[in-house]
């Protein structure tokens, strides 16, 4: 079966972001960029399905400027077979991304689409679900286990208070949670091989998708800093503060 994995290039998880002084956005100049961690998990899961003989081809897709090809090459070094780069300099909103991916699904006809549950920059947690709705396909979000059984995929999901397992009819959309797997490292010989794997460059127009703005970002601020703490003189005072001021017990 064919799997599509959609990946996003984002700021490296370890980088502490700084807000620009004009509050227009965060400052991304010369910061380290990487595969979104949840997307990396999605790539890993697809590779494991291929290694298990279940998947036959992994196509990795990314939307963004030229630089996203770096992450597509990384995904191919890890084990994806080919890549599609949909080039745009704008930062499309989740719904626009989902519309593009829906078109890619029309062309590629995959049985399974795996995405990260959210990107660690915009923290929206929307694209997978939107893609499933637009293509009228079942979804298994926040997956911590994925098993393909015949024409179905069993997805164990991380939900409030525990785990829930669903059976989805293929084709289906799966989004990954943190505990699904631990992504491998790219080996040098594979990094070299990945440079020769096919990478197709497209534009949103090629898929007949025009981006529409739904949400406007007015301003970005640094969150309020932690207040200096206070010292209390009794257990009663502590319990009172936790109950009535901090409201945590």
């Amino acid at each position: 079966m064919k799997i599509i994995v959609s990946v996003k290039r984002v700021i490296d998880y370890n980088v502490k972001v700084r807000v620009k002084s004009d509050n227009s956005d965060v400052d991304l100049s010369n910061v380290k960029m990487a595969l979104n961690p949840f997307c990396e998990i999605a790539v890993e899961e697809a590779i494991r399905l291929k290694e298990a003989g279940i998947a036959s081809e992994i196509v990795v897709v990314s939307i963004g400027p030229n630089a996203v090809q770096e992450q597509l090459r990384t995904a191919m070094a890890l084990g994806a077979d080919r890549a599609i780069h949909i080039e745009t300099d704008s930062q499309p909103e989740p719904l626009n991304v989902a519309k593009l991916l829906a078109k890619v699904m029309e062309v590629e006809a995959p049985e399974l689409v795996i995405l990260g549950k959210q990107s660690i920059d915009s923290d929206n947690n929307q694209v997978g679900q939107m893609l499933a709705a637009l293509t009228r396909r079942p979804q298994g979000t926040f997956a911590s286990k994925v098993t393909v059984e015949g024409g179905d995929v069993l997805v164990t999901r991380e939900v409030d208070g525990g785990l829930r397992t669903l059976s989805l009819t293929l084709p289906a959309i799966v989004t990954t949670d943190l505990r699904l797997n631990e992504p491998r490292y790219a080996k040098l010989p594979d990094i070299m091989k990945a440079k020769r794997k096919p990478l197709e460059v497209k534009t949103p127009a090629d898929f007949g998708v025009e981006f529409k703005q739904h949400i406007s970002q007015l301003k970005v601020e640094t969150p309020a800093q932690r207040q200096a703490g206070i010292k209390l003189d009794s257990v009663d005072a502590l319990i009172d503060k936790l109950k009535n001021e901090a409201k945590v017990i």
């Binding site: 700021i11 502490k16 972001v17 807000v19 965060v26 660690i120 920059d121 915009s122 923290d123 703005q213 739904h214 949400i215 406007s216 970002q217 007015l218 301003k219 970005v220 601020e221 640094t222 969150p223």
Partner: peptide, 13 residues
């Protein structure tokens, strides 16, 4: 956004 390291003000259109 950014895991709470920034707060965005957003307007729905």
């Amino acid at each position: 956004i950014y895991a709470g390291n920034a707060i965005a003000t957003v307007q729905s259109l």
